[in-house]
Design a protein around this nucleic acid. Structure first.
Length: 794
DNA sequence: GCACCTCGAGTTCC
DNA sequence: CTCGAGGTGC
C-alpha cells in the first residue's frame, strides 16, 4: 500500500469514527484506537507534505488542540455539567433533593430558586473581553487548554466585538456557538450546488466552521452564538445571581436565549422541562436538553464541585433522536392496493423516546439508494415526527457476505407476479383480491373507522376470518353468525396453541362476538360517501368519495357513470375517472356491491344530482372529456356545434345497408369543414374502437336522467363558514378532530389537511405542530376552538 | 407548460 | 407525517 492510499484509508476511517462520536454519540472504537489512527495519519502527513489536504481529519475535529491553532490556557476551567438522561419529573426532583440535602435545608425552608435554560447542541466557547473589547476566542478543548479560534469567531455577526458599557479589565463570557436549522439547510443547499460535501447536522457543520483554517471560509458558514456563563472576571461587579448575569449580558449586546426562566423548586423545573419538550421541534436550532442551575452565586459557592462537575447544576438530556442499530431482516408487506413495501426489522433501539423495531424502506429504489442489507448497522432517526426512518448505513460495520436486497418477483403471500409499472416507484402484487393479503387489507379498510366503522374487527381476527374462508368478500361479513365467530376463534386459538379455555375466557369470547355482530349490524346504513370510500376504489379516498356522493347523489348513478361524466366533476381527471369506471365495470366488483345491497346495506343520504352539475353536462364539455386525441376544448365546442347530441355522434359513420364496408362513409363531420381533417380522423378512429358508441349512448341516457332528476333551484344557505377552507391542528379542548370537521362541513365549509395561501382559517389546539408555523409564516388567520364555535353560531 | 395545491397511500407506536 | 402523483389555475 502506498502512503497516499494509506492516508486516504485513514482519513475515511477517522471520518467515520468522527461521525459516530460527534454525531451519534456512540463511538465505534475506543478512544485509544482512535488516537493511534489519528497519530498515524499526522505522522504520514508530516512525512509526506504533498499528502496534506484541507479536508483531512487532522485539520478538523479531534478533541485535542490541533497544532495549527494556538493553544489557550483557561484560567477558570471550562467545566462540563453533569448530564442525566432520566426524563421529566424524577430527575428534577432528585436534583432538587440533592441540592437541599447539601445545603442542609429542610422541608419548611422556602423552595430553592433555580435558573433553567436550554442545553444547546453546538460548541462551547470562551470569549475574552478586555476593557470591553473582544481579544480572544477559545474552544473548550480538554477544559484547561483550548484552541485559539479568534479569527473565525470574529466572523460571527451576532458576537459583539465591543461590549456596551463595560470597561472591566477582564470579562470572559462562556457560551455556545451553534448553527440555526434554517442556516444549516441553506448551507447544505449551497454546498450541494457547488458540488461540495454536505454536512450531517448543524452541530457538525458548526464544528467544521469553527475549526476552519481559512477564516474566509469560516465567514461563509452562518454561525450563531448564545452566552450562558462567566469565566475569568476582573473589575466587573458580580451580580448576586446567574439570572442577573444573563440579563446583564443582554444589556451589553450579547445574544442570550430567550427560552430561559428563573423558577422555584422542583415543580418549576418540571414545568420548564415539559414546556421545552413540547416546543423542542419548533425551535429554530437543535438542543440536547435543558440545564438547571442554582440561581444564587453564594449558594453555588457553598455547593462547590465533585471532581470537575459543579454540584449546583445538572443537564437533562432529551432522548437521542438518532441511534445505531442493526438490520435483522428485510421483509416485504403487501398493502391494500397490492403495493409491495420492504420493511427493515431492527434490533429494538430506544430513539426519540420510544423503542423502534421496524422502519419502512419505502420501495425498491430507496433500498438501493441507501444500499441497506441484512446484517448492516444503520442510523435510525425519529426526527420531529413520529415515523422512524433509516438514515444511512454505517459502511465500515458491514459484515462480510452481505448481499444486496432484491425485490421478490413473486408475491410472498399469493405467489402472483410482482409488477412495476414504468415510471412508478411502487411494485405491486398482480393477484388482486385473489391475494389473501389484499383481501385482508381490503376488509380492514372496509371496516375502518372513517369507512363503515365496524368495531371489534382487528387485523388478527380479519386474518383468521379470511384464512378459514368465513369471509371472502366484504358482504360475507353480514352473514356471519355467533356460531361462526366462536368457531373461528376456537380454531384460531387451537392453531396458535392457546390452552383450553376457562369458562371466563369463553364468556369473554362470546361477549366479543356479540359486540362485533351488533357493530356489523349497526354499519348497515352508512352515508353514501363513506360507503364509496369503504369500497377501496383506487384513487378514491375520503374526499373524492365525498365529491362523488355530493355531485351525483346516488350509488345507482355513480356505478353507471362513464369516464367523461366523472371527469366533469371537480378534482376528478382522467386517471381517477378511469379508476372509478374500471372498478364498477369489473364484474367481480359489481357483484360485490350487489351482494352488499342484498345483505341489507343501504347507503344513506342519497339525493338528486347537484344542480351545479348542469353546466358541466353540455355536450361540448362532455366531448372534451372523451379522451380523443387532438380534440382540445375549442375543437370539442366546434364538434358540439356540428353534432349537438351524443346520440348523433354515436350514429356517425355507421355502415348503411348496401354500403361497401371497405369504403369510407361520408359523414356530417367531413361535410361541415369546420374541424381540421386530422381532428375528424381522430374522432372517427375513436368511434371505431369497440364499446365507444355504446358508451356514448349510455352517457346520453344518463345525462338525460340526471338533468331530469335535478331539483329546479336551490337556495344555498350562506353562513360565515360556507365556502371557507379550514385546517385543523393540535388537540382541541372539547371537540375531537372529527367532530370539528363534521360541524364545519355541515355548514358548507371545507376541511383540508395542509395549509396554503388559500386557507382561510387554521384552528389550532394544544401541541399544534408545523401547520401552525406555516400558518403564521403565510399570515393565515389562526383561531382557537372558542373562536371556531363563535363562527359556527354566527 | 409550469407551479402550486391537494389528495391518496403507506407506515409506526401507544 | 411525508412522499408522490393527480388536478387545476395561471
Amino acid at each position: 500500500m502506498t502512503p497516499a492510499e494509506r492516508a486516504k484509508e485513514l482519513r475515511e476511517t477517522l471520518e467515520h469514527h468522527n461521525h459516530a462520536y460527534y454525531v451519534l454519540d456512540t463511538p465505534a472504537v475506543p478512544d485509544a484506537e482512535y488516537d493511534r489512527l489519528f497519530r498515524e495519519l499526522q505522522a504520514l502527513e508530516a512525512e509526506h507534505p504533498e499528502l496534506q489536504s484541507p479536508d483531512s481529519p487532522t485539520r478538523r475535529v479531534g478533541g485535542k488542540p490541533l497544532p495549527e491553532f494556538g493553544q489557550v490556557a483557561h484560567r477558570v476551567p471550562m467545566l462540563s455539567i453533569r448530564t442525566e438522561t432520566d426524563t421529566e419529573a424524577s430527575g428534577a426532583q432528585a436534583f432538587d433533593a440533592r441540592v437541599r440535602r447539601e445545603l442542609e435545608l429542610t422541608e419548611v425552608d422556602a423552595p430553592i430558586e433555580y435558573a433553567a435554560e436550554l442545553k444547546f447542541d453546538g460548541l462551547a466557547m470562551s470569549l475574552r473581553y478586555e476593557h470591553g473589547v473582544l481579544v480572544q476566542a477559545a474552544t473548550r478543548g480538554d477544559g484547561s487548554v483550548g484552541e485559539d479560534v479568534t479569527q473565525n469567531i470574529r466572523t460571527i455577526r451576532s458576537i459583539p466585538l465591543r461590549l456596551q458599557g463595560v470597561d472591566a479589565p477582564v470579562l470572559e463570557v462562556r457560551g455556545e456557538v451553534y448553527m440555526r436549522r434554517d442556516d444549516f439547510d441553506k448551507l447544505n443547499e449551497r454546498q450541494r450546488a457547488e458540488g461540495e460535501k454536505t454536512f450531517v447536522n448543524p452541530r457538525n457543520a458548526a464544528a467544521g466552521a469553527v475549526r476552519q483554517l481559512d477564516p474566509t471560509i469560516a465567514a461563509r458558514r452562518p454561525l450563531s452564538f448564545f452566552a450562558y456563563g462567566l469565566g475569568e472576571v476582573q473589575g466587573w461587579p458580580l451580580p448576586a445571581t446567574h439570572g442577573d448575569t444573563l440579563a446583564a449580558f443582554a444589556v451589553m449586546g450579547l445574544p442570550v436565549c430567550a427560552d430561559r426562566t428563573v423558577t422555584q423548586g422542583a415543580d418549576g423545573l418540571i414545568a420548564f422541562h415539559q414546556a421545552i419538550a413540547a416546543k423542542r421541534d419548533s425551535l429554530p436550532f437543535d438542543i440536547d436538553g435543558v440545564v438547571y442551575k442554582v440561581n444564587r452565586y453564594d449558594l453555588q459557592q457553598r455547593l462547590g464541585f465533585v471532581t470537575r462537575e459543579p454540584r449546583w447544576a445538572v443537564a437533562h438530556k432529551y432522548p437521542a433522536q438518532e441511534m445505531l442499530t442493526t438490520v435483522e431482516a428485510i421483509e416485504v408487506q403487501v398493502g391494500r392496493t397490492g403495493a409491495i413495501t420492504p420493511v427493515a426489522r431492527l434490533t429494538p433501539v430506544f430513539v426519540g423516546g420510544v423503542t423502534v423495531t421496524n422502519a419502512t424502506l419505502h420501495n425498491e429504489d430507496e433500498v438501493r439508494r441507501k444500499d441497506v442489507r441484512v446484517g448492516d448497522t444503520v442510523i435510525v432517526r425519529r426526527a420531529g415526527d413520529v415515523i422512524p426512518e433509516v438514515v444511512a448505513v454505517v459502511a465500515e460495520r458491514r459484515p462480510a457476505d452481505t448481499r444486496p436486497f432484491v425485490m421478490p418477483s413473486r408475491c410472498p403471500v399469493c405467489d402472483s407476479h410482482v409488477v412495476r409499472e414504468p415510471g412508478e416507484a411502487v411494485a405491486r402484487c398482480s393477484g388482486g383480491l385473489a391475494c389473501r393479503a389484499q383481501r385482508v387489507q381490503a376488509i380492514l379498510h372496509f371496516a375502518g373507522r372513517r369507512m363503515m366503522d365496524i368495531e371489534g374487527l382487528g387485523d388478527r381476527y380479519v386474518e383468521r376470518l379470511v384464512e378459514f374462508d368465513y369471509v371472502v368478500r366484504v358482504a360475507d361479513l353480514y352473514r356471519l353468525t355467533l356460531a361462526d365467530l366462536l368457531e373461528m376463534k376456537r380454531r384460531a386459538d387451537e392453531k396458535d396453541g392457546i390452552t383450553p379455555e376457562t369458562v371466563k375466557q369463553g364468556q369473554i369470547a362470546t361477549l366479543w362476538a356479540e359486540n362485533l355482530l351488533t357493530s356489523i349490524a349497526a354499519s348497515k346504513t352508512p352515508p353514501l360517501a363513506r360507503f364509496l370510500f369503504a369500497l377501496g376504489i383506487r384513487h378514491v379516498g375520503e374526499s373524492t368519495a365525498k365529491v362523488l356522493a355530493d355531485w351525483l347523489g346516488s350509488l345507482a348513478i355513480i356505478r353507471r357513470a362513464p369516464v367523461p361524466l366523472l371527469m366533469a366533476l371537480p378534482d376528478i381527471g382522467a386517471t381517477v375517472a378511469e379508476a372509478i369506471a374500471d372498478f364498477f365495470a369489473e364484474p367481480h366488483n359489481s357483484e360485490a356491491v350487489d351482494q352488499l345491497l342484498a345483505a341489507g346495506v343501504i347507503p344513506t343520504g342519497e339525493h338528486p344530482p347537484a344542480p351545479a352539475l348542469a353546466p358541466q353536462l353540455t355536450w361540448a364539455t362532455l366531448y372534451g372529456h372523451l379522451g380523443i386525441a387532438k380534440l382540445t376544448d375549442i375543437r370539442a365546442r366546434q364538434l358540439a356545434e356540428i353534432v349537438p347530441e351524443g346520440e348523433a355522434l354515436a350514429a356517425i359513420g355507421l355502415p348503411q345497408a348496401g354500403d361497401d364496408l371497405f369504403s369510407t362513409p361520408t359523414t356530417p363531420l367531413e361535410q361541415a369543414g369546420t374541424l381540421p381533417a386530422p381532428v375528424v380522423e381522430e374522432v372517427l378512429r375513436w368511434l371505431e374502437q369497440p364499446g365507444q358508441r355504446k358508451m356514448l349512448l349510455n352517457l346520453a341516457a344518463l345525462r338525460a336522467e340526471l338533468l331530469a332528476a335535478m331539483p329546479a333551484g336551490t337556495e344555498a344557505r350562506e353562513t360565515a363558514i360556507s365556502g371557507k377552507t379550514f385546517v385543523l391542528t393540535g388537540t382541541l379542548p372539547s371537540l375531537s378532530r372529527d367532530e370539528a370537521k363534521d360541524l364545519i362541513e355541515a355548514q358548507g365549509g371545507k376541511v383540508s389537511g395542509s395549509v396554503s395561501k388559500k386557507t382561510h382559517y387554521v384552528v389550532a389546539g394544544s401541541e399544534a405542530g408545523s401547520k401552525l408555523e406555516k400558518a403564521l409564516a403565510l399570515g393565515v388567520s389562526v383561531i382557537d376552538e372558542s373562536q371556531l364555535k363563535a363562527l359556527l353560531e354566527s
